[in-house]
C-alpha cells in the first residue's frame, strides 16, 4: 500500500487501521439496530414499514422514511467514498475487481436506502430487496475491510 512520502506511511497506516476498527463498530451497531427495530425476516420488514392493524403498528409514511434516510444518504456516500478510495493505493488500483466493487457497493447501498418507498407503495417484493441489500451491503463492507487489512499487512 503506497501513501507516497515514506515518513508518513506509518502514521497513515495506523490511521487507516483505526478507521477500519471504527467502521467495524459502525457495522456492528447497524446490525444490532436493524435487529432491534426491524428484524431479519421478510415478514418483520413488511410489518415495520407497512404496519400491522392487529398489533396496532402504524405504517410508515414517505416523509417518515425520508427523515430516516436523509442522514444516511450523505453518510453512505461519504463513508463508501472514503473506504473505496483507499483501494486506489493498493494493487487493485486499475483492476476490474475494483470497478466491480465500486459499482456493486453504491448500487446495493442505493437499493438499501430506497426500497422502503416501493414497499409502502404496495410492491411487497421490495421487502426481500431491502433485506437482501442490507445483508449484502454488510458483507461487502466486510470484504472491503479484509482487502484493506490485507493490503496494509502484506503489501
Amino acid at each position: 500500500m503506497d501513501f507516497g512520502d515514506s515518513s508518513l506511511q506509518k502514521a497513515y497506516k495506523y490511521s487507516l487501521l483505526y478507521f477500519l476498527l471504527f467502521s467495524f463498530l459502525l457495522l456492528t451497531s447497524s446490525i444490532l439496530l436493524f435487529e432491534q427495530k426491524i428484524g431479519f425476516s421478510v415478514g418483520e420488514v413488511l410489518r415495520y414499514y407497512n404496519g400491522n392493524e392487529a398489533q396496532f403498528i402504524p405504517s410508515k409514511s414517505s416523509a417518515g422514511i425520508l427523515k430516516i434516510i436523509l442522514p444516511h444518504i450523505f453518510g453512505f456516500g461519504i463513508f463508501f467514498m472514503v473506504l473505496l478510495h483507499f483501494l486506489l493505493f493498493t494493487k487493485l488500483r486499475s483492476s476490474k475487481k475494483l470497478k466491480f466493487l465500486i459499482f456493486t457497493t453504491f448500487i446495493v447501498a442505493f437499493l438499501e436506502l430506497f426500497s422502503p418507498f416501493l414497499m409502502i407503495a404496495g410492491v411487497t417484493f421490495f421487502a426481500s430487496v431491502k433485506l437482501f441489500s442490507f445483508v449484502l451491503l454488510e458483507l461487502l463492507m466486510l470484504c472491503l475491510f479484509w482487502l484493506l487489512v490485507k493490503a496494509i499487512v502484506y503489501e
Binding site: 483505526y18 467502521s23 459502525l26 451497531s29 439496530l33 472514503v82
Partner: peptide, 13 residues
C-alpha cells in the same frame, strides 16, 4: 451510539 461512532470516526480520521 450508531451516530456517535460515525461522527467520532469521521472527525478523528
Amino acid at each position: 451510539i450508531h451516530t456517535e461512532i460515525f461522527f467520532i470516526m469521521m472527525v478523528s480520521f
